[in-house]
Write a protein that binds this DNA or RNA. Structure first.
Length: 271
DNA sequence: CCATGTACCTGAAGGC
DNA sequence: TGCCTTCAGGTACATG
């Protein structure tokens, strides 16, 4: 479920709540969720910061690193004390892991489909080695994007979805970005003109920043750290709009399998 | 290198 | 009301 904007929203909310907290214990309710590859115990270590790369949440600890990927249905919620049963904890029907802090507050990882992972590693590169530059990273520029595309035979949708070049885009924001740029999802990545690459770069940035402002998109499962849904689904121009008229030209939005995923686009506006 | 299929999981929705 | 199929914000891995 969550792509970059949803992860960014959760991180911004969690940062003031859990940076500085010290871990007393990890409770694992679904064993596959917890991937512990660190030499040092997590108990007693404190959270120094929260960062993001693509869809990964990264929590540097004193001597190791905690990394979380929410995959399709992962959700994080903070409980300030042991007795809390507030609205932000409602709907947590599939708790897979709980981090207990020394002050009796806790971070709850809920994940209906069990695809999400909570990694504990000594070197973050173990997990992040195949994850490219973050789509909101200031070092990513139109010029760099154009160079990354050159010589690529793959389709542009597959390129944007692969996290090894640019990280953070998933199925929704890829389709929305391509629509905004007027580029067909099956257009070969390597044959985009410099101008098209620049327009697509601008579109990706616009779409992601708009979604962050709107606290992410909620289709069904996504909730932020306080249990609130996002508002960005109200701004979709193609996602889930198959059969409905294109906002630019009125042509029905088409749905087709591209790069293994349901893909929505306007056959007239996107070439 | 690239495309495609499968696996990992649960639950909602649609067809009959 | 059931039963069966398909689909879903993701990614890793196997196979041509």
């Amino acid at each position: 479920m969550p792509e970059l904007p949803e992860v960014e929203t959760v991180i911004r909310e969690l940062r003031p709540l859990i940076v500085g907290k010290c871990i007393e214990q990890v409770e694992v309710l679904w064993p596959k969720t917890w991937v512990n590859r660190s030499e040092v115990p997590i108990e007693g270590q404190c959270i120094k910061a929260i960062r993001r790369r693509g869809k990964y949440l990264i929590f540097p600890l004193d001597e190791s690193t905690l990394i979380i990927h929410l995959r399709m249905t992962g959700r994080l919620a903070f409980a300030p004390d042991a007795e809390t049963n507030s609205v932000q904890l409602q709907g947590l029907n599939h708790v897979r892991l709980v981090l207990f802090f020394t002050d009796d507050s806790r971070l709850i990882f809920n994940d209906t489909r069990k695809f999400g992972r909570v990694y504990h590693v000594d070197d973050p590169a173990e997990i992040l080695k195949n994850t490219g530059k973050d789509a909101l990273d200031e070092d990513w520029t139109p010029e760099l994007f154009y160079r990354m595309l050159s010589g690529r035979k793959t389709g542009i949708k597959a390129f944007l979805m692969s996290q090894k070049f640019i990280s953070g885009l998933g199925n929704i924001y890829t389709d929305e970005s391509l629509f905004r740029a007027g580029i067909h999802p099956e257009h070969s990545a390597g044959s985009l003109s410099r101008k098209e690459a620049e327009r697509l770069f601008e579109s990706v940035r616009f779409i992601l920043e708009q979604a962050v402002k709107n606290m992410g998109s909620t289709i069904s499962d996504y909730r932020d750290a306080y249990g609130n849904p996002g508002k960005n689904q109200l701004y979709f121009k193609v996602y889930k709009r198959e059969g409905q008229p294109c906002f630019n030209c009125g042509t029905p939005i088409q749905k087709k399998r591209v790069a293994g995923r349901s893909t929505r686009f306007c056959p007239k506006c996107q070439k």
